[in-house]
Design a protein around this nucleic acid. Structure first.
Lengths: 281, 281
DNA sequence: CATCATTTGTGCGTATGTATC
DNA sequence: AGATACATACGCACAAATGAT
């Protein structure tokens, strides 16, 4: 009732945060129960819950219903390497057979209405939404061919989504079989008469929507990393946009190192990190 | 009371989310008040507030006390270009005078105990915390020289933090004056006898802590983008680690395009994006 | 300038459901 | 089966910010 300068839940959150960061509660250890904390801080349980929510959002703790609240271990981040030549059509289902993606398994797409053949990869034509259109230099609603798949990695224990968008005008006579067929068939077709192609990789992050959180099994309050790769024709036309989404706490990107000198010494730091590389684009 | 399969607040969140994404509430427009929503959905205000919180975390709405709840406009993302040669010592306060960083202004560091000379950039020696040590291949607690500054850009209207860490053993006799002096003086010193150097840029994201949120004026529930640049000696030793932190909703990174062909055609897509580039590292 | 209605922020007490051990 | 812990939800009260009167 009495109005403190700072809200009670913030005071409690600060206390718990300090306890965690200064290792009085170590990773994996349980925090006191909400009722216990309520007594200790002399507040009601809803107030404690506000503090708990704040720390969940900071990624410091995980709450497990029926069990308790636990300090989150800091997860290792695996490396996604950008700019690796030659670039492949990673949205093709044939990419699975490549050696480069060892450890990645196709994950069934959780859509009950999906035809049997598409559980591991959808390809369809749809109107571009605002954001996709902007990225591809098209008008909103322009037809694009979308290929979508979900991948799982046993080591990382999380999933990523791969979406590819191609201006439908560029591949008017492609069938579904063509799209899911041989690796790089789509790229070779796109490149014909338009090459040499160039690429731009961009990386950013945002908070997931509810459905994304569930699809990718992202913890509450954790951001997703957005990795986009755009393929340009010789004259600057967008040929393809590929987007990869995954939990930011599990991944970081790195670009291939282009030393101005031709010296191969740069392999030294790379090899040190080599064990963390889990995907090359 | 009756237990629905999905919580009421999720149902309400889903309804509002659809209303926003399908533009029934347009960017900038106010949502109905919490009491109005409570009546409309026939629930209590705390329940509505749970739904509202969820949408705030998804970045869809902003809540302003005393005024109401509003649909967030999607902000433009500015480009931070990685891998631009030659690389400069962006942590040096002399970097300010470069042409490359036009638009960036040094922001005073909000620490009342700071000596007058350091309001625009701290440099000090401290023990490396666990994460920094890991990134630099040092033991936790090893002495590192840290340089820290905050920058503001009028166009983006947000701030970024730049931190540089150097193994203190590598510059034992550097004074504060040396560190804040001529551009690239530190780099030239580090490179002496250890070059040619190589670089690795990494990008990831996480949720900010409370104090970071306030320092960088990041909206509640918005992630920060972490951009790290590591400078390696010829034999793979870490010479410097630079980290940039900013609100992920305002920035994305892009790596310079290294086409295998020497053809300069790649300037085409670049120029299309040129206007968005706000920083080159 | 003061006042008032509106709107969100904080906090308590309570009740009931459900997962885990 | 019972104890414990978290999840959802309601109703209420008051504080504080805002904008209009």
């Amino acid at each position: 009732m009495e109005v403190e300068a700072t809200p009670l839940w913030k005071v409690i959150a600060a206390g718990l945060r300090a306890d965690i960061l200064e290792a009085r509660y170590t990773p994996g250890a349980p925090l006191p129960s909400e009722t216990a904390l309520a007594e200790r801080y002399n507040v009601s349980r809803p107030t404690v819950r506000d503090a708990v929510k704040a720390l969940v959002l900071e990624g410091l703790i995980t709450v497990i219903r029926g069990r308790g609240t636990f300090v989150r271990p800091v997860p290792d981040r695996y490396l996604i390497m950008l700019g690796v030549e030659p670039r492949h059509d990673i949205a093709s289902s044939a990419y699975n057979s490549e050696g480069q993606n060892q450890g990645w398994l196709r994950w069934p797409i959780p859509d009950p209405e999906l035809p049997e053949a598409d559980v591991y990869g959808i390809s369809n034509v749809l109107p571009a939404d605002r954001e996709t259109a902007m990225l591809m230099g098209l008008r909103t609603g322009h037809s694009v061919v979308r290929r979508y798949s979900v991948w799982f990695h046993a080591k990382v224990r999380t999933r990523i989504e791969v979406s590819s968008f191609i201006n439908a005008d560029l591949i008017p006579d492609f069938t579904r079989a063509d799209l899911v067929g041989e690796l790089d068939a789509v790229y070779r077709h796109l490149e014909k008469g338009r090459g040499p192609v160039s690429w731009a990789d961009t990386v950013t992050a945002r908070m997931p929507y509810e459905n994304e959180r569930e699809r990718l099994e992202i913890e509450a309050g954790a951001p997703i990393l957005l990795i986009r790769r755009i393929m340009y024709s010789r004259d600057g036309q967008v040929l393809e946009m590929t987007e990869i989404r995954g939990a930011a706490e599990h991944y970081e990107t790195t670009s291939v190192d282009v030393s101005s000198d031709q010296d191969q010494s740069r392999s030294a730091p790379k090899s040190a990190e080599g064990g963390r590389v889990i995907l090359a684009l």
